Simulated assay, not measured.
Amino acid sequence: MILIKEFEFDAAHNLIHYHGKCEKLHGHTYRLVVKLEGKPDEEGMIFDFVELKNIVNEKIISKFDHAYLNNIISQPTAENIAMYTWKNLEKYVNRNNCSLYEVEVWETKTSGVIYRGE
């Protein structure tokens, strides 16, 4: 089974190693989707939604929301945001019955990336 939890945050960035409009300072309302793969435990859950929400809010959203992402990630592309999110969540969500499966980062309604670890 795949458990899914969505989040949203607003942030600014500029892509310093890119030549085009996005090298200028701009912002997005990002959508972050965290997916865990696993089997229900003795309580019938892969992972408690409330606990997952708290972990993602503490480890990711509290750092990214209304932030200048270049202060956190040197080249904050959607790809690098997804890899950062994976690296900073994996150890907190992997359990005997489940593990981090996939991270999606959407910069706009039509443009995003999916990362499944290395």
Rank of each mutant, 00 (worst) to 15 (best):
I2D: 08
I4P: 00
I4R: 15
K5S: 14
D10P: 01
D10T: 02
A11Q: 05
A11S: 13
L15K: 01
H17V: 02
G20H: 11
G20V: 09
G20W: 11
K21A: 14
E23D: 13
K24C: 05
K24Q: 14
K24H: 14
L25G: 04
L25H: 08
H28C: 02
H28F: 02
T29I: 09
Y30G: 01
Y30R: 06
R31W: 00
V34K: 04
V34W: 06
K35V: 03
E37A: 15
K39Y: 10
P40V: 11
D41H: 02
D41M: 06
E43W: 06
M45E: 10
F47L: 11
F47R: 13
D48T: 07
F49E: 10
F49G: 06
F49H: 05
F49K: 12
N54F: 00
I55L: 10
N57E: 15
I60Q: 02
S62D: 11
K63N: 08
H66G: 03
A67Y: 00
A67D: 01
A67T: 04
Y68E: 09
Y68G: 03
L69W: 05
I73A: 04
S74M: 08
E79R: 08
N80A: 03
N80P: 07
I81N: 00
Y84L: 04
E90M: 02
K91R: 12
K91M: 09
N96E: 15
N97S: 10
N97P: 05
N97R: 09
C98V: 01
C98Q: 08
E102V: 02
E104L: 13
V105M: 12
W106R: 00
E107Y: 09
T110R: 15
G112T: 09
G112I: 10
V113A: 04
I114Q: 11
Y115W: 10
Y115D: 08
Y115Q: 05
E118A: 14
E118R: 12
